[in-house]
Design a binder for these strands. Structure first.
Length: 211
DNA sequence: CGCACGATGCTCT
DNA sequence: GAGCATCGTGCGC
């Protein structure tokens, strides 16, 4: 069942980051359907030096100030996109960092293979195998086909092709809390949340505090 | 296995 | 002009 405005409005940003774990993300694109299950999130708050909204509203982060359930998509390092869900607190959002591929695996693999950096196995890990399709914010956006031009600022409550679902039959596993990844400021804050022992997370936690 | 680095382009100072 | 909420490679141990 699709998550509605009342769902996004019932949590503060930390709560939303936790509530989104286990939810599925659906994209019905012109190329086909892809669905993944969220297994890792990060909260970005107000007065948080790591947040894009830290210095107020700008052209890039405008959708962070839109209503709860708005999609915030931005370009990072000139080659990847990251996707967020805006919370009810103006200027705050939840970064979707990793997910388990559920539907449209071949389409995900195809999209990922288009990226110049995704060449065939050099190291020992194949970037196109199941656990490596969505286990990072840039990869997840790539595999799901999200871009800023097409998807930033759309409403997950009403958009025809992009939305989240809650699988009520799914029992949510224990949630692990850690510090956030890949930031220089505010890196000590415990705002990263993941499903315990999940094989589809991006980086294994250094220390665990189970809620 | 772990760390350092480059790719690449937009955003804000 | 600097700095990025990233990712994959290359190299050293």
């Amino acid at each position: 069942m699709r998550l509605t405005a009342s769902f996004y409005e019932q949590y503060d940003t930390i709560g939303l980051a936790q509530a989104l774990l286990g939810c599925t993300m659906v994209h019905q694109s012109a190329d086909g359907l892809t669905i993944c299950r969220i297994v890792e999130t990060e909260a970005y708050l107000n007065n948080d030096p790591a947040s894009h909204s830290y210095k107020g509203q700008t052209a890039r982060n405008a959708s962070m100030f839109a209503p709860a359930g708005t999609f915030y998509v931005y370009l990072i390092y000139g080659m990847y996109y990251c996707v967020n869900v805006v919370s009810k607190e103006a200027g705050e959002a939840v970064l979707i960092r990793a997910a388990e591929p559920i539907e449209g695996i071949e389409l995900m693999r195809y999209r990922r293979s288009l990226h110049p950096k995704t060449s065939l196995p050099k190291h020992s890990i194949n970037p196109l195998t199941l656990p490596n399709l969505c286990n990072g914010p840039g990869k997840l956006a790539q595999a799901m086909g999200f871009t800023r031009a097409q998807h930033d600022s759309l409403c997950l409550c009403s958009d025809a092709r992009v939305y989240l679902e809650k699988d009520t039959s799914l029992v949510t596993n224990e949630i692990v809390t850690t510090t956030r990844i890949g930031i220089t400021q505010g890196s000590e804050l415990p705002y990263r949340f993941l499903l315990k022992d999940n094989p589809y997370i991006s980086v294994k936690p250094r220390y665990n505090s189970v809620i």
